[in-house]
Measured scan of single mutants.
Amino acid sequence: TEDARKEAKKIIDNGGSPDEAAKFIKKYGLSEDQARELVKRAL
């Protein structure tokens, strides 16, 4: 979702790792793979 993508970008912009961002956005109901893909797109 757009919200999850924004959250991921915010985490990374604040110095978080892509892994942290992926873990965080899994709470939106995404699978591990979906979360990682979304983080990649957010970069």
Score class of each variant (00 low, 15 high):
7 E>V: 12
34 Q>V: 09
15 G>A: 02
26 K>Y: 08
27 K>Q: 09
6 K>H: 08
34 Q>A: 09
17 S>P: 05
41 R>F: 10
40 K>Q: 13
17 S>A: 05
27 K>L: 06
24 F>S: 10
7 E>H: 08
24 F>W: 11
14 N>Q: 12
33 D>L: 09
3 D>A: 14
28 Y>K: 00
36 R>V: 09
42 A>M: 15
17 S>V: 06
8 A>L: 12
25 I>L: 15
30 L>I: 07
33 D>E: 14
41 R>K: 11
9 K>C: 14
2 E>L: 11
5 R>L: 15
27 K>T: 05
36 R>Q: 09
27 K>D: 01
6 K>V: 10
31 S>M: 03
16 G>P: 02
5 R>Y: 15
5 R>F: 15
12 I>D: 02
7 E>D: 13
25 I>R: 05
11 I>D: 01
42 A>R: 04
35 A>F: 10
43 L>D: 01
16 G>S: 05
40 K>H: 14
14 N>V: 05
14 N>E: 10
27 K>P: 00
41 R>Y: 11
32 E>A: 08
28 Y>P: 00
43 L>N: 03
22 A>S: 06
9 K>G: 04
31 S>W: 01
4 A>R: 03
21 A>G: 01
40 K>I: 13
20 E>L: 08
33 D>T: 11
42 A>D: 01
34 Q>M: 08
29 G>Y: 01
32 E>V: 07
9 K>L: 14
20 E>G: 01
31 S>Q: 02
28 Y>G: 00
24 F>N: 05
30 L>D: 00
22 A>R: 07
10 K>R: 14
35 A>N: 01
27 K>A: 06
9 K>V: 07
2 E>S: 10
13 D>R: 11
35 A>P: 00
40 K>V: 10
4 A>P: 08
40 K>E: 13
23 K>H: 11
7 E>T: 09
1 T>Y: 15
6 K>W: 11
18 P>T: 07
23 K>C: 14
7 E>S: 08
13 D>A: 13
11 I>W: 07
38 L>H: 00
36 R>Y: 12
29 G>K: 04
8 A>E: 01
40 K>N: 12
27 K>Y: 05
19 D>Q: 10
38 L>T: 03
3 D>M: 15
39 V>T: 02
43 L>Y: 07
25 I>D: 00
31 S>C: 04
13 D>G: 07
18 P>I: 13
20 E>P: 03
41 R>C: 15
23 K>E: 15
39 V>I: 11
6 K>L: 13
23 K>Q: 14
33 D>V: 10
7 E>M: 15
17 S>M: 04
5 R>P: 04
8 A>S: 03
5 R>D: 05
36 R>K: 10
21 A>W: 15
26 K>R: 14
32 E>R: 02
22 A>Y: 14
13 D>V: 07
6 K>N: 10
9 K>M: 14
19 D>I: 07
27 K>G: 05
30 L>E: 00
18 P>D: 07
26 K>Q: 15
13 D>H: 08
7 E>K: 07
3 D>Q: 14
41 R>A: 13
16 G>F: 08
14 N>W: 07
33 D>F: 09
21 A>K: 03
38 L>G: 00
1 T>C: 15
8 A>I: 14
4 A>T: 03
1 T>F: 15
38 L>R: 00
12 I>C: 04
34 Q>W: 05
36 R>C: 13
7 E>A: 14
31 S>R: 00
4 A>I: 13
21 A>L: 15
25 I>N: 01
22 A>M: 15
39 V>N: 01
43 L>H: 04
22 A>Q: 07
39 V>K: 00
19 D>R: 09
41 R>D: 09
9 K>W: 13
30 L>N: 00
31 S>D: 10
17 S>C: 09
42 A>I: 15
25 I>T: 01
26 K>A: 13
7 E>C: 15
21 A>F: 15
22 A>H: 06
19 D>L: 08
20 E>T: 05
40 K>D: 11
20 E>K: 03
43 L>G: 04
4 A>F: 08
9 K>Y: 07
37 E>V: 05
6 K>E: 10
14 N>I: 06
34 Q>T: 06
6 K>M: 12
15 G>S: 03
8 A>H: 02
12 I>H: 03
26 K>V: 14
32 E>M: 12
33 D>C: 13
15 G>L: 04
13 D>N: 09
21 A>N: 03
41 R>S: 12
40 K>T: 11
23 K>P: 01
25 I>K: 03
43 L>Q: 07
38 L>K: 00
37 E>P: 00
6 K>D: 06
13 D>T: 07
21 A>P: 01
39 V>E: 01
2 E>G: 08
38 L>V: 13
19 D>H: 08
20 E>R: 05
40 K>A: 13
15 G>E: 03
40 K>G: 08
4 A>H: 03
40 K>R: 13
42 A>S: 06
9 K>F: 09
34 Q>S: 05
29 G>S: 02
40 K>F: 14
2 E>N: 09
28 Y>A: 00
24 F>E: 10
14 N>Y: 06
4 A>E: 01
27 K>W: 05
5 R>A: 13
34 Q>R: 03
35 A>Y: 09
40 K>P: 01
32 E>L: 12
4 A>S: 02
2 E>K: 08
32 E>D: 13
12 I>G: 01
12 I>W: 05
4 A>G: 03
35 A>Q: 01
3 D>V: 14
34 Q>P: 00
23 K>L: 12
15 G>Q: 04
12 I>N: 02
19 D>V: 09
34 Q>H: 03
34 Q>N: 02
5 R>H: 10
39 V>S: 02
1 T>D: 11
36 R>G: 03
27 K>R: 11
26 K>H: 07
1 T>L: 15
15 G>W: 04
14 N>D: 10
38 L>D: 01
26 K>D: 01
19 D>Y: 12
7 E>F: 09
23 K>W: 12
9 K>A: 07
21 A>S: 03
35 A>W: 14
3 D>T: 13
26 K>S: 11
1 T>E: 12
39 V>D: 01
1 T>K: 10
22 A>C: 11
21 A>H: 04
18 P>K: 05
4 A>K: 04
41 R>P: 01
24 F>I: 12
12 I>A: 02
32 E>Q: 06
14 N>K: 09
39 V>W: 04
13 D>Q: 12
21 A>R: 05
31 S>P: 04
15 G>D: 03
16 G>E: 03
19 D>P: 00
14 N>A: 14
36 R>M: 12
39 V>Q: 01
31 S>G: 05
29 G>V: 01
10 K>Q: 10
43 L>A: 06
35 A>D: 00
28 Y>D: 00
32 E>W: 13
43 L>T: 05
28 Y>V: 00
19 D>M: 09
28 Y>Q: 00
39 V>P: 00
21 A>D: 04
1 T>M: 15
21 A>V: 13
40 K>Y: 14
28 Y>F: 13
32 E>I: 11
36 R>F: 09
8 A>P: 02
29 G>I: 02
31 S>I: 01
16 G>H: 05
1 T>V: 14
39 V>Y: 06
1 T>A: 12
20 E>Q: 09
18 P>L: 14
12 I>V: 05
19 D>A: 11
21 A>E: 03
33 D>H: 09
24 F>R: 09
13 D>Y: 08
35 A>E: 01
28 Y>N: 00
36 R>N: 08
1 T>G: 09
14 N>L: 10
22 A>E: 08
17 S>K: 04
38 L>Y: 05
31 S>N: 10
16 G>T: 03
2 E>P: 09
35 A>M: 06
20 E>S: 05
7 E>I: 13
19 D>T: 09
8 A>R: 03
18 P>R: 06
36 R>W: 15
28 Y>E: 01
21 A>Q: 02
31 S>F: 00
2 E>W: 09
38 L>E: 02
4 A>D: 01
25 I>A: 07
26 K>W: 06
24 F>A: 15
8 A>D: 02
34 Q>I: 07
29 G>D: 02
10 K>N: 08
4 A>M: 12
14 N>G: 12
15 G>K: 03
26 K>E: 14
12 I>Y: 04
29 G>F: 05
23 K>F: 10
2 E>T: 09
37 E>F: 02
37 E>M: 08
17 S>Q: 04
3 D>F: 14
6 K>S: 08
39 V>L: 11
42 A>Y: 14
36 R>A: 08
19 D>G: 07
13 D>M: 13
34 Q>Y: 06
31 S>V: 01
15 G>C: 13
38 L>M: 08
29 G>L: 03
9 K>T: 05
22 A>P: 00
16 G>Q: 05
3 D>R: 14
30 L>M: 06
24 F>P: 00
39 V>A: 03
28 Y>L: 06
18 P>W: 11
11 I>H: 02
23 K>M: 13
9 K>N: 04
41 R>V: 09
31 S>A: 04
37 E>A: 11
38 L>C: 11
28 Y>R: 00
30 L>F: 11
5 R>I: 15
8 A>N: 01
32 E>Y: 12
12 I>S: 03
20 E>Y: 11
35 A>V: 11
23 K>N: 14
35 A>I: 13
17 S>H: 07
10 K>W: 13
13 D>I: 08
12 I>T: 03
